[in-house]
Structures are given as C-alpha cells and as structure tokens.
Design a protein around this nucleic acid. Structure first.
Length: 990
RNA sequence: GCCCGGGUGGUGGAAUGGUAGACACGCAAGACUUAAAAUCUUGUAAGCGUAAGCUUGUGCGGGUUCGACUCCCGCCCCGGGCACCA
C-alpha cells in the first residue's frame, strides 16, 4: 500500500478528538507548559499559509512537550471584532455576527484538517458577550483607577472608513485598512494612560526572554530620553516657555525659539504687526495632517511672532517663532533653536537668516584649512583671502602657503614647500586645492600621511583652454599625484575612488569653466557658468547643483551643523568642558537658578481607545446630564451590542450605535434619571489584550478567570506571532496585563516569558499574497494534493523561522517525497533485522539535533537532519531494525503526526503514538569511534585519514607526516609547529 | 538620520574558530517504460586538466590566528522597524 495522506489524515484527526488527547488539565501534577500562538482574525479569505507556519511549528513543540511529560496548554480562539467584518457586512447586508460565525467555522474546519493539537474545549471568541463582558470589566477598572479618561484631541480621521484611528493604525499617512489619506479631526475620545507604565514596560523587558530585535523595537517605540527642561522668560511678560532638550551643552548657541502651532502661549505672543501672517500660518498648519507635515521634512517653515524671550544662560534676547516642524505632543511643543549643532535648526536658520552661533567644537578636529593655489596663483589673489575670512568667522584657522613661481611649476618644489606645514596638522584638516593645487593637494596628503576630513577641489573645465597652463600641469606630473589623468582641461576624469580614500568625510569637487576665476571675491564671487559636484564618502556623485553662488555653497559645507559631542566654546564659564560634563554642570547651574531641571521624556503617547463603529465592544459608560460620566455597574455587564439592521457609520464622528435610540437612552446608574449610553466602541486591540488569560478559564462567569487557574498556567511560556505585532499588540497587552497585576487580577509582572516571531510567507512571485494579484496559496489545496503532514513540514523546512520567505511549489514536492521515503522504509523493514551501530549512532544524533533545534526555533535544520537520517536508512536498509523504526516514528510524530500515527499502528501498536515517551539521547552513544582526521599543511587541507577517535597527538603526528601527499607539501622545509584537535584536525606548520 | 537583521552555487538555504556549500529544489546523463509521468542511480561552486590533482572562491578593503563565512577595524549594498521626538 502506498502513502495516501488523504485517507489516513481525517481518520486520525477524528480519533484524536474522540480520545481528547490534547486536553490541558488544570492543576495537573505534571509540570505545565503554556504554548501560545496569536489567535487569528477569522477573515473571509480563510486561513493563510502564514498562519500555518506559526501553528505547525508551535504544534511540533507542543506535541513534543506533551511526550516529554508536560501538561501542555495549546489553545485557540477568534479575534473577531474589527473592521473587515464590518465592512463586509455593510457591503453585503449580512449581519457581522453571522459573518463572524461563518468565517470562524471555515477557519475551524481548515485548522482541524491540519491536525493541529489545539485544545478545542477552550475555544474563545472575543465577540461573544460572555467574553467581552470581561473586556468591558477591564475598562471599568481602568476608569476606576483613573487610567481611562476622555479628552478633546485631534485624532487621525479616515474619511473613507469614517473612523478615528490610533497613531499605530496610520501607515505612511494613510489608513492602515483602506489606504485612504488620513486627516485630522478634533473629537472627544476615550484615552488609556499607557504612559503611566512607560518605565515598567522598559525595565521589565529584563525579566523576559524575547528576541533582542523585539526588545529593541519596544524600547524604541517607548522612546525614553533624558534631558533638561529649560525656562525661557518671555520678555515683558510673566509667561514662561518651557523647552525640553537633550543637548543642554548647546544652550549658549540658542538663536531662536520655535513653538508648535498648537502651543497654548502663541495667542499672547503675537504682536499686532505680525498678527495676520502668524494666524494664517497656524491656520494652514492645522489643516495639514501629520503626514503632510512630515512630508515637508526638507523645507522647514515658520513665522516670527514678534515677541522675544530671554536665554537664562546668558540673558540674551531670543526671538520666538512658530514652526510646524515642531511636534506639538512632545516635550511641551517648544524647542530651542541651535543652528550650529542641529541640522533641522540649521535648515531653519538658513532659511530665515537667523544667526548661527558655534558653541561646540569637535575636539578631534584641529580646525585648520589649508589653501593650495593653482598655476598662476589667481585663486590666491582672488578668493583665498575672502575664504580665509569666512573660515575664521566660524572658528577655523586658514593657511595660505606661499608656493614657488607658478609660471614654471615643479611638483617636487611645491611639495617641498608644503612639507614645512606638515607639523601644523596633528589633527584633521581641510584642504582646498585649485587647478594645479588639485593634484598637489592629493599628493601632499598621500605623502605626508595626513588625516583629512574634507577635500575641496576646484578644477577648471570648459571649452576655451589655455595650452600654456595645460603644459604646465603636465610638466608638474599630475599622474604622479595619483590622479589618473587631466588630459584636457575639459576632461575631469579623476580617480575619485583614490581621492576619496584620502579623506574621512567627503570630497567636494567644484569645476568651473573659467580657470582664472576673475571676479573679485570681496564683491560676491560668482562664476558665470559652473557646476559643483559633491562626492560623499561612499564614493558616489551625490548631488549636482546648477550653481548660483559658489561662496555660499562653500561656507555651507564648512559650517554644516556639527551634531556630535565635543568641547564647549563661546559658553562663558563652561568653556573647554566636554559636552558630557557640560550637560551635567549646566543643568545643575540652571537648577540652582530655578531656570531648569532634569527631565525625562517619552515618545510613547496615551492610547486613543475610542472607535466610532458598530462592530466592537461597547464602552460601558453612561453620560448623565446631572452626574456626568457614570460607569456602568459591574453587575450590569455585559453592555451588549444591540442586534440591529443598520450598522453603517454615521460619518459625523459618531458611532452607528448613536442612531439606536432605544439602546442609547437609558437610566443613570447613579441618580436613575434619564441618561445616554456612550456610543463609541473599543478598538480591536481590546479583546486581544488579555485573551490568553481567558484560555486558562474560558467559561468562568464570576471573574475574568479564576485566580488559582491563572496562577497555575501563567505566565505564557512561549508566545509566537507575527513580526507586525511586536510593537503594538505586544506593548498594549503587556500594559493591560501589568495593570491587572497591580489590581491583583493577574499573578505575575509579565505575561509572556518568551516571545518569538515568524517571518511572512510571500507568494511565489515574491509579492505579498493577495486576492488582487491572484497569487494566494490556499492551504486546503495543499492538504488535498499532498496532505497536511507535507504542508506542515514544508512550512518548517522552507527557511529560517524568523525570516521572510517565498513560497515554492517545487519545495512542497520535495517534502512529500521525503514522507514517501519514510513510508517505504517502514513498509520494507523486517522484524528480524538488527540495527547497525552506525544507524543507532545516527539516530542518537538525530534525537539530539531535534531536541536542540526545536528549542532554538531552527525548525528548518531539524527537518533537514531528519531527511539526512532517512536517506541513510534508505541506503542501509538491511541495518534498520524494529527498534530504530519505532524511535524514528516517535521522533517524527511532532512533525508528521498523521503519518507517524498510521505507521505506528501498522507495526502493531494499539495505543496512540502520542502517549509514548519522548526518547532521551545518550551523549555517550553519539561519539564516533572512527573519524576522518583532516590533515592540513599550513592551514590548507591536503589529506584525510580514517583513524580511531581516541588517537593521541603523537600518533596522529607520526601518521600524518608519513603520508606521501603530506611529505610532498612539507618538502624539505622544517616543521615549526603542529596543531592537533583530537578527532578533528591536525595542522602542520612549516 | 537612528535602531535591528542580513549579504554564501542556477534557487531556498547549511556551517558561529577547524573538510564552505549539509538538506531541499532545479538542471544534466543513465535505468525502468511502446511512450510520458512517477520512481531509482550518478553528477552538479568556478577555472585549468583525459585524469590524479592544482588554483580560486562566502559583498569590498584591511587586521588577528597555525587556521576566518564565523572574531576585530573601515567601507559598500539589501531587507525590516522608527523617524522633524529636539
């Protein structure tokens, strides 16, 4: 009989279910293991092969754990509230409850056809009142503790879904669901104070075992930063503007303040003469969505309010501006502008001509600029003096060496003169070379082995050439200078790779068509027609400007914002301190003056918890004209969703529930007077925040879950899910769990002991699987064609678990072939065969490999090891005894449960294979007796000798040297050293 | 820009200091077949060579080491997350 998965799989699925093999037992004496996968959203599209990837891998772990003696909880349920179902219902007129039931039934059928060992007796559904009653209960508790509150806030509004969105649901300025651009709308919203848990959400990551990547993402999202809050007094007023900065060391460099358009003090600050302009600006800014504002990253805009404030450090008058590049919801919505040391401030200052004041100097950079002139020294007369001035303005020292007669230049002579400057540049410097100065500068840097930050090369190009100059260049030996050629003036074939390597940061190459640069630089030197090319340190041509003003570009390059730490200058008594020291000292000084204090800021914001939709948990709140906001008493939970015909969003910012007067109108729980129900519902995160707790006690109608049961099962030992949920779902559910811990409803500080994530499964064409591309793989089809076992193993085998991977129809076939081989081996095995020691050893090795790989989520290599073993068995059929077959089937059972069970019974067993004990490998039996000793000569493999594993170094050495091939490679050289790794390698060094 | 990953045959990938390319796909040749499919056997990094064998080879450039895909320094490229967060 051949392997026919279609026949055997349903048979076993039915039997397993009848025998209740996968029931988790509360309070069992066996050690517990809670294995959790993210419960699916039962969409109309059915199960995705991505679900299967996660479920089959963890199913293998669950099955193995049970056989190892663990009391395993591996549950499943439905995260069924949410937009797609509601949208589908709106389109088709079918009630969302019906849609949910139908979809969940389909998912259930599909999951069951895969033979996953879920404990179906604990199935939950977030849309059932008996479940969401407790979701609402959690909300009441949050409200009671002041962690749920209402606020008038501008929310992200999707004009298409007609719904408010959380920041997390806005992707690239568009609605995560429908892709429509998101707008701003001010609505009264329920908020959850997740920010109260910021620190604990970071700190407690130390208590859990998550992938480092996931921890990093969580920390990143919370975005904790330490800094100083500084008070700027508004001139002629008692008002104070508080700004937050992490760069307190740059305080003396402040040249303006910029407030977000939403800043509360703006009204007061606007001077009559600026009124019109400012108000218009603010109006325009408020219209823009966050995304649109973000889009303007390149150009920062703002307006001056007319008011000034006082820098508490130096009592300087500082203008107050309004700019929409300042984020309103972070650090009080006000920033101090330090153009010299922040690139955004720099852009802003450049645009509005604010002064740029350098207060931090790179202590590594000596700040010297070397100006090397060209053939006739025109640049030396024309623009070097101006350039020198510009450099000195910003604190750089500029040197103009007096090079020998330019009429008849000799490279050697020039270099000789330059070498006397060498000593001046202990640190980094900037070199500017003009025409002949280009190759000279390069050669100088190379020969003197200098550290150069930037190299600015000015070379002539163009049609009208000067033959005399060209000859001079040639005579000077430009090729020697490391520049492949300047064959003609209009050719700029320089070896940029080589030149770039001379510098640390960048090469700036200005080419002009006028070699003499004739204009007087003091009167704003302007090349008539020129081009500037900037080569960054990647060796790439970075940008090309049609140039209007050379000097500005040059000065730009030199004083671009220096954002690193360094040494303080122009900062009064704090001069010469390092940035680190200065931050401490200036903060302390401000604190003493009462003008500043240490402050911690977070990027994390409170969580918008209202949705204006029908298909979600109603928020259990009543609004009473007398008593105000009144929570629904616990005994009245759940507040059930009314079953209605119309659930279209109203589009007014109100939920469809608002239209159902018999539901909305109720009595106030406090005064019994007429009152109205809250009509907003909760976001789809609400139900998935705590579902894993409910699995511990799914039918409890007294409490969320029995505390003894929770104490028995929690925390979750291993939680796997999609990478896309590692910030939002994970962070939110940790927050809710911590809150429940605080009120005594949860037993441990963290819910998930271990968290892993699986990569997405892409379609064979490398795109996301999508109906519209027509590239979706339906698990049903694979099960029908190859069986569930093939699908399960293929998804484990396809690649590293955490990596995105593309589907391969051919790959599925390969796994099927493997299972057929297993079938064949068992079918052809005989009772009386004796297993060879080679096979037994291989089996032990396989045992070890599977144990280790399943624990390390290396499912792909576990399967590969299995294939290897089966190939060996096939090659040595006569050495495979019954003992090996039995153990092999047990080892295979977590991967291919149906096949393993079928064959197990075929070889004469009556009980399920899953009641067997998981075998333990014996490390002693793994050791090879005979090994291939690799013989290297000078680290290169030259020979292999089959030897006993225990061979001594001395004997190995003798043996190795005696070999002919080895002799040949040693020749008559002396053996200097021999490295011996027992049982592995011997390396002879000559 | 910042924070994570990653770069290895025709393809997915394996190897975390010791024989690079396990395992699988694909391809080629052969066997079986009237034929095809399926299956089985053999081969399959590149270059030179009839062969034995030699040389080269894990993004690029250096370094450490008897020995480097693996460790260190610098750079390039790709993927993911965050992003005007001061």
């Amino acid at each position: 009989m051949n392997y026919k998965p279609q026949e055997i799989e349903p048979k076993w699925q039915k039997l397993w279910e009848e025998k209740k093999l996968y029931r988790a037992e509360d309070f069992s004496k066996r050690p517990k293991k809670y294995i959790l996968i993210e419960f699916p959203y039962p969409s109309g599209d059915g199960l995705h092969v991505g679900h299967v990837r996660s479920y089959s891998a963890l199913d293998a772990v669950a099955r193995k754990s049970r056989m190892e003696g663990f009391n395993v909880l591996y549950p499943i349920g439905w995260d069924a509230f949410g937009l797609p179902t509601e949208n589908y219902a709106i389109k088709t007129g079918i009630h969302p409850q019906k849609v949910t039931e139908k979809n969940a039934a389909n998912f259930k059928r599909q999951l069951k056809s895969l033979g996953l060992s879920f404990d179906w007796s604990r199935e939950i559904n977030t849309t059932e009142p008996k479940y969401y009653r407790w979701t609402q209960w959690i909300f009441l508790k949050l409200f009671e503790k002041g962690l749920a509150y209402q606020a008038e806030i501008p929310v992200n509004w999707c004009p298409s879904c007609k719904i408010g969105l959380a920041n997390e649901e806005v992707v690239g300025g568009a609605c995560e669901r429908c892709g429509a651009p998101v707008e701003k709308k001010v609505l009264k919203q329920w908020m959850l104070k997740i920010t109260a848990y910021s620190d604990r959400l970071i700190e407690d990551l130390g208590k859990v075992n998550y992938l480092e990547k996931i921890k990093a993402q969580q920390i990143n999202w919370i975005g904790k930063s330490y800094g100083t809050e500084i008070d700027f007094k508004v001139e002629g007023s008692k008002d104070i503007i508080q700004v937050f900065t992490t760069r307190t060391d740059t305080l003396f460099g402040v040249t303006a303040l910029v407030l977000a358009p939403e800043h509360p003090l703006i009204e007061k600050l606007i001077k009559p003469e600026n009124k019109e302009e400012v108000e218009e600006y603010i109006k325009a800014a408020k219209k823009k969505s966050d995304f649109e504002r973000g889009q303007l990253e390149k150009e920062k805009t703002g307006v001056f309010t007319g008011s000034y404030c006082i820098n508490p450090a130096n009592e300087e008058k500082v203008p107050i501006w309004v700019g929409d590049y300042v984020v309103a919801t972070y650090g009080g919505g006000a920033v101090m502008v330090v153009p010299a040391h922040d690139y955004r401030d720099y852009d802003f200052a450049k645009k509005y001509n604010l002064p740029i004041k350098v207060v931090i100097r790179d202590d590594k950079l000596k700040g010297t600029v070397l100006l090397i002139h060209g053939i006739c020294g025109h640049s030396k007369e024309n623009w070097f003096p101006w350039f020198k001035q510009e450099c000195e303005k910003i604190g750089y020292k500029a040197l103009i060496p007096d090079l020998p007669n330019a009429e008849n230049p000799e490279m050697k002579e020039w270099l000789g003169t330059l070498s006397s400057f060498k000593e001046e540049f202990a640190g980094d410097l900037i070199v500017v070379g003009h025409s002949l100065g280009v190759p000279v500068a390069c050669k100088f840097i190379e020969e003197a082995n200098l550290k150069v930050k930037k190299l600015i090369l000015v070379a002539p190009t163009g049609e009208k050439q000067d033959e005399k100059n060209w000859q001079a260049l040639k005579k000077a030996g430009t090729d020697d200078a490391g520049i492949s050629c300047i064959q003609k003036f209009n050719s700029t074939k320089l070896d940029w790779g080589k030149i770039r390597r001379l510098t640390e940061e960048s090469v700036i190459y200005l080419s002009t068509n006028d070699p003499y640069i004739p204009l007087s630089v003091q009167e704003n030197y302007k090349p008539l027609k020129s081009e500037i090319k900037i080569f960054d340190n990647k060796g790439h041509f970075n940008e090309s400007y049609g140039i209007k003003e050379l000097p500005e570009i040059v000065s730009d390059i030199l004083i671009e914002a220096y954002t690193d730490y360094g040494k303080l200058v122009n900062s009064g008594q704090f001069n010469d301190l390092s940035s680190e020291e200065a931050i401490e000292k200036i903060t302390a000084w401000l604190e003493k003056k009462g003008a500043g204090r240490k402050k911690v800021q977070y990027k994390l914001r409170d969580w918008v918890f209202s949705r204006q939709h029908y298909w979600g948990e109603p928020i259990p709140i009543v609004h009473c004209p007398k008593c105000g906001v009144a929570p629904v008493p616990e005994k009245d939970l759940p507040v059930e969703l009314p079953y209605v015909e119309k659930y279209q969003p109203t589009g007014t910012g109100e939920s469809p529930l608002a239209a159902i007067s018999e539901w909305v109108n109720t009595k106030c729980p406090k005064c019994a007077g007429p009152a109205k129900r809250e009509t907003d519902t909760m976001p789809n995160w609400a139900g998935s925040n705590w579902y894993y707790m409910r699995y511990c006690d799914p039918d409890n109608d007294k409490v969320l879950a029995d505390s003894k049961k929770l104490r028995y099962w929690l925390p979750v030992d291993w939680y796997n899910g999609g990478m896309e949920h590692t910030t939002l779902h994970l962070l939110y559910s940790r927050f809710i769990y911590k809150f429940l811990f605080d009120i005594g409803a949860a037993p441990t500080p963290e819910p998930y002991q271990r968290r892993t994530s699986h990569g997405i499964v892409l379609a064979e064409d490398g795109r996301k699987m999508s109906k519209s591309f027509g590239n979706v793989i339906n698990p049903d089809d694979i099960v029908e064609k190859y069986g569930a076992d093939t699908l399960r193993i293929y998804e484990m085998f396809m690649g590293p678990f955490d990596q995105t991977i593309t589907w391969s129809a051919q790959g599925v076939k390969g796994v099927y072939r493997f299972l057929e081989k297993v079938w064949r081996i068992v079918a052809e095995s005989g009772e009386n065969k004796e297993s060879s020691s080679e096979i037994l050893r291989a089996l032990q090795k396989l045992n070890k490999k599977i144990d280790e790989d399943l624990e390390a989520t290396k499912f792909n290599t576990a399967v590969a090891a299995f294939m290897e073993f089966i190939n060996l068995c096939l090659a040595k059929k006569e050495n495979v005894g019954k003992d090996v077959i039995e153990k092999t089937l047990i080892l295979l059972s977590p991967f291919a449960p149906h096949l393993a069970e079928e064959l197990w019974q075929k070889i004469g067993h009556k009980e399920s294979i899953f009641l067997e004990k998981w075998p333990k490998y014996d490390p002693k039996l793994i050791k090879e007796e005979v090994v291939n000793l690799v013989v290297q000569v000078n680290g290169k493999v030259r020979d292999k000798i089959e030897v006993e594993a225990s061979l001594s170094e001395e004997k190995a050495r003798e043996l190795a040297i005696s070999r002919q091939i080895v002799q040949k490679w040693i020749g008559d050289k002396e053996i200097k050293k021999v490295i011996f790794v027992p049982g592995k390698i011997i390396n002879i060094v000559t």
